[in-house]
Design a protein around this nucleic acid. Structure first.
Length: 480
DNA sequence: AAAAAAC
């Protein structure tokens, strides 16, 4: 048992096999079913540590195999320590896995189910936006493992359909995201319902001071596992920027997708309306697309995701609901229709491609107004992103993109009724002179050469507001 | 500024 933080940074030996971890044959059989033989680096590090019963602070990007990294040893632990419950009919919840989004919860639950399919352990997923009754029924029938989003979980606790008094293991997946989304008060309420004696696992793609603070507040002597450099984008992802006038971005996306023959791409939009609008535009251009965002019903969200996985649609236009965690195999390309407001979200979006060793492309569109966002992003990822020409793309002007108040008589509405005016509309072309701004040429220069070695929190730069907010919350303040 | 998450 480690009495202090222990950093395990060595890479796993290449030929490690799942059989080497002493996992139950039932688990190994499930892995074999899926054709998994060798663990990823984070799995090789996490599995033995979790099996020892240690708390874990894991810094892991998506696509590193993190889910199996915690669910396999959890299943093993639950199998090894048979339920102490007097009545075998009762299945107390023994492990709780929290995620920030519904889709992620669903996906983690699928994995847990697959890994435990040959064991007597039962699991279920619980999240909002869908009927409560089936979840209640599943919970009542008894489950050892619950995967949930915080709000609906608390709802079930209130309804007394769920009891957390016997929960021995807590996992917080995408903890940074949960903080961003203001889940801290919910997390605290949930944690207060758990036994004091338990194992905590926390995973986060980024490793901000806020996250460290959260970790310190409820992990006990956590072992730190860090697989990817934090706040860094994967080396195998080629990142580029194309400067495009704001009102030509829709066409630019269509152009990029057509020109490169992209068959599986996620396009990120900053707004729900923007996502729907772009999706419609792409459809009009003959690109099979669907939007996924928080204003869609849960059914629509699941259908869009499924259609994308099946290949029925080629383009998933998403808000940041899809920025993290979604497991879509070997996504070759992501496009940022908008640069994200939070620099960290850039890392997460880009993390949707180039996964598990494969290479990928991350294409971002930007315009003059994004100068500031771009600076923030490059500061975070600590390098510049190449500004390239979108060769062959001719920005055009059509009535579609003219602000309503500028509507003029020469652009008759009839010219758009046919829908696709982009290629054949004869009045559409009005090549723009590309003006290059000074800042555009100026490479990123690190203003603050990384946080100085920082003598244990005694940093001289007066506390940032976000930090103070989290500190206040950790002190017991509700409300965000 | 925006999105997400419980009803």
């Amino acid at each position: 048992m480690p009495d202090t933080q222990l950093a395990l940074t060595h890479p796993a030996a290449p030929a490690v096999r799942f059989e080497d971890f002493g996992l139950s044959p039932d688990i190994l059989r499930a892995l074999a079913d899926q054709g998994y033989i060798h663990p990823t680096p984070i799995q090789a590090e996490a599995i033995p540590i979790v099996l020892q019963g240690c708390d874990v602070m894991g810094a892991a990007q998506t696509g590193t195999g993190k889910t199996a990294g915690f669910s396999l040893p959890i299943i093993q632990l639950l199998l090894a320590h048979a339920s102490t419950s007097a009545s075998p009919a009762r299945h107390p919840v023994r492990a709780l896995i929290l995620t920030p989004t519904r889709e992620l919860a669903d996906q983690v639950a699928d994995n847990v189910k697959a890994y435990s399919r040959h064991t007597p352990l039962r699991s279920t997923v619980v999240f909002g936006g869908v009927d409560m009754a089936p979840q209640t029924a599943a919970l009542r029938s008894g489950v050892e493992i619950v995967i949930a989003t915080p709000g609906r979980l608390l709802d079930h606790v209130q309804q007394k359909t769920l009891n957390l008094s016997q929960t021995q293991i807590l996992v917080m997946d995408e903890a940074d995201r949960m903080l961003d989304m203001g889940f801290l008060p919910d997390l605290q309420r949930i944690i207060n319902m758990l036994p004091a004696q338990r194992q905590n696992l926390m995973f986060s793609a980024t490793f901000s001071p806020e996250i460290k603070k959260l970790a310190n507040s409820f992990l006990k002597n956590p072992v730190t596992i860090e697989v990817a450099r934090s706040n860094a984008t994967a080396d195998n992802v080629t990142q580029v920027l194309y400067k495009v006038e704001e009102d030509a971005k829709h066409d630019a996306v269509a152009y990029i997708i057509r020109e490169r023959g992209l068959k599986q791409v996620i396009v990120f939009s900053n707004t729900k309306i923007g996502a729907s609008r772009l999706s419609r535009h792409l459809e009009k251009e003959g690109v099979k697309a669907a939007a996924i965002h928080g204003d869609k019903t849960q059914g629509e969200r699941m259908a869009a995701l499924e259609a994308f996985k099946q290949g029925t649609i080629e383009v998933l236009v998403a808000t940041d609901v899809a920025a993290r965690g979604l497991d879509i195999a070997e996504l070759p390309c992501v496009i940022n229709f908008d640069l994200p407001y939070n620099a960290e979200d850039y890392v997460h979006r880009v993390g949707r491609t180039g996964r598990a060793g494969a290479s990928g492309d991350a294409i971002s569109l930007f315009s003059d107004k994004d100068a500031r966002l771009l600076t923030d992003i490059e500061k975070l990822i600590k390098h510049t992103i190449s500004r390239l020409q979108l060769t062959g793309f001719v920005p055009q002007r059509s009535s579609d993109r003219r602000p309503r108040y500028e509507e003029s008589s020469d652009r008759a509405a009839s010219s758009r009724s046919s829908g696709n005016s982009s290629q054949y509309g004869r009045s559409a072309y009005a090549p723009r002179k590309e003006k290059i701004d000074p800042w555009f040429l100026k490479p990123y220069e690190p203003t603050v050469p990384a946080p100085q070695q920082d003598q244990n929190g005694a940093s001289g730069q007066g506390g940032k507001p976000a930090k103070a907010k989290v500190a206040a919350l950790l002190g017991g303040m509700p409300k965000r």
